[in-house]
Design a protein around this nucleic acid. Structure first.
Lengths: 146, 146
DNA sequence: TGAAAAAAAGACCTAGTAGGTCTATATTTG
DNA sequence: CAAATATAGACCTACTAGGTCTTTTTTTCA
């Protein structure tokens, strides 16, 4: 029960994009620097976000990324599932009843199912727009110490 | 965001114990067989449950385990945290503000904090008594096919 | 008293994965 | 053409989940 760095970084990247003027293209390097993401790491994550249709990429000099959709329409749940995997607390909840022969008589199944629904529906209700971050972590941290 | 086998097996073991007459001592091997837990694996898990005060052990021939407390007073959350680790979605939620220098300006922190509270409080409200299983998975599965 | 049955303790092993780094290639701008 | 960029994918390391087994200690009971 642990959210990986990929999700953390993906959310940071999207929050930063959400804070830019609409259509402003931002490079991977800028996002990494503003949001304190390890060099290069973001390239793999952005690939997933592009493939998932959350972000649009622009190849070539002056290229970079923009949100592919309004920030308000992108939920944290969707981000999670795009860069990692569907939110599933136990495998048997995902696969059908015949994944494990005991599913039919399992007393805990409904417990994890409920817990999973709770968190998934909460995350489904939080949008990237809600946590947009125009300046990025490094920018706002620097502002604090001034 | 995934619940490991240790928790699964711990819950199965406790549910089985909860279904026995009060004070009935049950051996590790019996629990493993009735609840379809891999041989030997349960020994490591029971160690944690004993250390955590959820289960009482009885060494020697005719030994085994009993619940140390009423099943209704043992929550799934407590089981989880006893055999694995505290329920924490991101490390920074656990460690103080100074774990990561950006905590103070992090826009996602509250999101994961809320999600974490939701699931923790739900699991805190489900007890082993709620999912007690006197016959175990194998027993009930066999009953079905008869 | 001794053999059997059980927990306690811990060593060991394997495959998978998280997290991170780097390089080569294609594309675009100016 | 040169510089800047995404794309694609190779590569690496440390950790962990999950599982198996063995040795020791304690207890029961015949």
């Amino acid at each position: 029960m642990n959210v990986g760095r990929r999700v953390d970084y993906a959310v940071r990247a999207l929050s930063y994009l959400a804070g830019q003027p609409t259509g402003k293209i931002v490079s991977r390097v800028e996002i990494e620097q503003k949001q304190a993401i390890p060099s290069y790491f973001l390239s793999k994550i952005m690939k997933d976000l592009v493939a998932g249709g959350l972000v649009q990429s622009h190849i070539g000099s002056k290229g970079g990324f923009t949100l592919a959709r309004p920030a308000e329409s992108i939920s944290v749940k969707e981000v999670y599932e795009t860069v990692e995997r569907p939110i599933v607390l136990m495998e048997c909840l995902d696969k059908g009843e015949n994944y494990c022969s005991y599913c039919g008589v399992c007393t805990q199944r409904s417990v994890w199912d409920k817990a999973q629904s709770l968190v998934a529906s909460y995350l489904g209700g939080v949008s990237i727009g809600d946590i947009s971050d125009p300046r990025g972590l490094t920018g706002r941290l620097a502002a604090l110490s001034r």
